[in-house]
Structure formats: structure tokens, C-alpha cells
Design a protein around this nucleic acid. Sequence first.
DNA 1: GTACACATGTAACCGGTTACATGATTGC
DNA 2: GCAATCATGTAACCGGTTACATGTGTAC
Lengths: 188, 188
Amino acid sequence: MAQPELTNLELALLGLLDYRPMSGYDVQGIFATTALAHFSSSPGAIYPTLKRLEKRGLAEATLDRTRETRPRRVYSMTTAGQEAFVAWLRQPVTREELVRNGSAPILRFSLCGKYLTPGEVTAYLEGYRRELRAYLNELDEHRRALEQQGALHHRLALLHGIRGYEATVAWVDEAIHAVASAESDVRT
Amino acid sequence: MAQPELTNLELALLGLLDYRPMSGYDVQGIFATTALAHFSSSPGAIYPTLKRLEKRGLAEATLDRTRETRPRRVYSMTTAGQEAFVAWLRQPVTREELVRNGSAPILRFSLCGKYLTPGEVTAYLEGYRRELRAYLNELDEHRRALEQQGALHHRLALLHGIRGYEATVAWVDEAIHAVASAESDVRT
DNA sequence: GTACACATGTAACCGGTTACATGATTGC
DNA sequence: GCAATCATGTAACCGGTTACATGTGTAC
């Protein structure tokens, strides 16, 4: 049961495999050409990670020889992989995650559409917003402290962080609306 | 001459040592209590990094025994360290850095006030803004592509990225003004 | 005598980066 | 024969994380 903490890269790969089975080369192409560009498209990152997922029983490979090129190792998610993936999808955003692994909440959101109900997605986003606001309050205290005696550049750097989190809060509002109106479209 | 690419943590430590000489324990306190919280305050991160800076000749330690406790190793920057640090401060933001190491441009800005003239800082921020806008154009193309056939959550995730970069552009505008008006205050 | 604050270290592990090596086929 | 494209792999290195271990003095 004790799953050993998947990395963002592992989770992103599971998300891709969930979308459709694919090879390391396919993944490389996606990382190189889409907005997932902050993942490295180097083979040294991708192939060992796929192997690792396989060793842990979260993905499995089949050899594709239908094309007349070098055979491709096509990976797909196992049911164990799906379970671990969905368990991760259901994690609410924590303060810890927000500060230390800030891109994870968005990664999770981007991949959860297939498994979570609109209600669950909305609850997730509301939780995210709660943590964002709480952290913004902390940052605001820092700002008040710096206002008195901090250097201009330090104050501005902090302000950048604050503006970024504020933009995320605004995005969450947008996303909640978008999810709600997509849901009401479906019902009509 | 070929300096071997300093990490963000190493650069942040150099920035702190430039502010004032300090021990690993001081650094830990700062990382734990200020907005630099996304750096780990664990001793396993800080002490080896300080040693590394010392080994590379970028910092040097003196033992402080004036207090009646365990002696403190107080590090300060060497002139070689200062040179490497300032060379880094003068790097303009590149597209590569923006995508792969997005927090570095802000770290650099927050630490450059002492060594760069207001004119240089403004030029740096303008370069940053140029890269941000260029990258936003790329992201906008991705968005148009997704608009036709992408899943709602993927479109929204991309929108989050766009909103974040837009917020940074707005912050750069603010920062340019703040730097300019601080400069004109000084001249009066 | 023990809890706490101050202060430094390191060993084991692990994942990501870089760079290199290779296999298979098509088209010139 | 060689370049290009598709496709997979891995060895060496390195920095960060976690967890543990230890030293020194003060206050209760």
C-alpha cells in the first residue's frame, strides 16, 4: 500500500499514458512541442522513468512491431497505476505543496477531468484557493515588515510572488466558472 | 575562468553573504522565517553548499569564538566570489532560463541592486519583459490550437501559465516605474 | 539532570542532466 | 555509402532530501 511518493515527471507520464498508450519517443515529442515544455524531453529523463514505472507495476510495456522500423516499447497504465494516479488526483492542495512544489496543483488539475466529478473538481479548486489566500496573508505580513526597512529590490521581489499568487487566485475563479458552465451545458 | 554553473541555492547563498557574512545557522534561520521559504532550510542542504562555495574559492570561513557557545563558522564572499556573482547578475534573461528555471530572473533582480546602476537594472527588466512577451506569443499559439480540440482542463491549465506570465509582465512594468522613481528621488 | 537553544555535520539515497552509443529503415 | 528519421538505452556525475549524530552552554 505504502506508495513511495511519485515525482511530477512520473505523474505527468502516468497522465499521458492514461490519455493513450505511448512510447518514450512519443512522450519526447510531446514534451518538445507542447506547452509541457518545462519537462525535459531528453531521453535520459524519459526512458529511465518509464522503466521505473514498469518496475513498480504502475505501467506495462508491449512491443509494437507493426511498423517496419525499430520496434517501439509502447507503455500503458496498469490498474495499479490507475489506482495510484487517481489517489494522487484526490489529494487536496496543502500549504506545503503550494510552497515547495507549486506546479503540482496545476498538473493535478489538468489531469483530473476524466476521473473526478465536476463537484469534486470544484471542491478541489476551492481548497486550492483557500490555501492560496492563507499563504497570501502570510506574504502580506512579510511585506508589511519589509515596508519599514527592506531594500527596494527585496520588496519588489516579494511583490512579484504576491502578484503571482493573486493571478492564480483569479485563475481559480475563472476555472470554477468554466467548470460550472461546462457542467450546465452538458445537462441542457 | 570557466565557472561551473552555479545553482540557485549557491547564488542565493552568495547573495546573503554579500549582504553580510553569516554562518550556516544564520542562513537556516533566514530560509525558515522569511519569504525565501522555497529554499529548504535543512542543514543537509545548507552546510554542504557552503563548503562547496569555500572549496571553489567563492567564499571563506572564519571561526567565531566570541560567544560562549559552540564556535560558529562565519562565511564571507571572496573577491573571486564577488566576481562570479556580479558576472551572473549581468546575465540577461533568456528564453531557456524563462522556461526551465523561471525563478532565477527574479532571484537575480532581487540581488542586483547593489552592483548594477539603475540604468542597467532597467535594461535588465526590459529584456526580461521582451522574453516574457515572446514566450506569451508562443503560448498563445498553443492556446489557439487547443481551442479547437483540447480538453477543458488542458485549456485551463495552459491559461494558468499564460495568466502567470501576464502577471509577471505587469509586475515588470511596476518594477521599472519603481526603480525609475527611486532614482529620481535620489537625484533631488 | 534534563530540556532547550544554538550550532555543525554527514551518510544513504535518489532522480535528473549531460553526453554518448546504438539499432532499424528510407531515400538520395 | 551516407544522411535523416524513428527509436531506445545507459554510464557518469551531481545536487538536494531525509534522517541521524553530535557539540556547547544556559535555565529550570
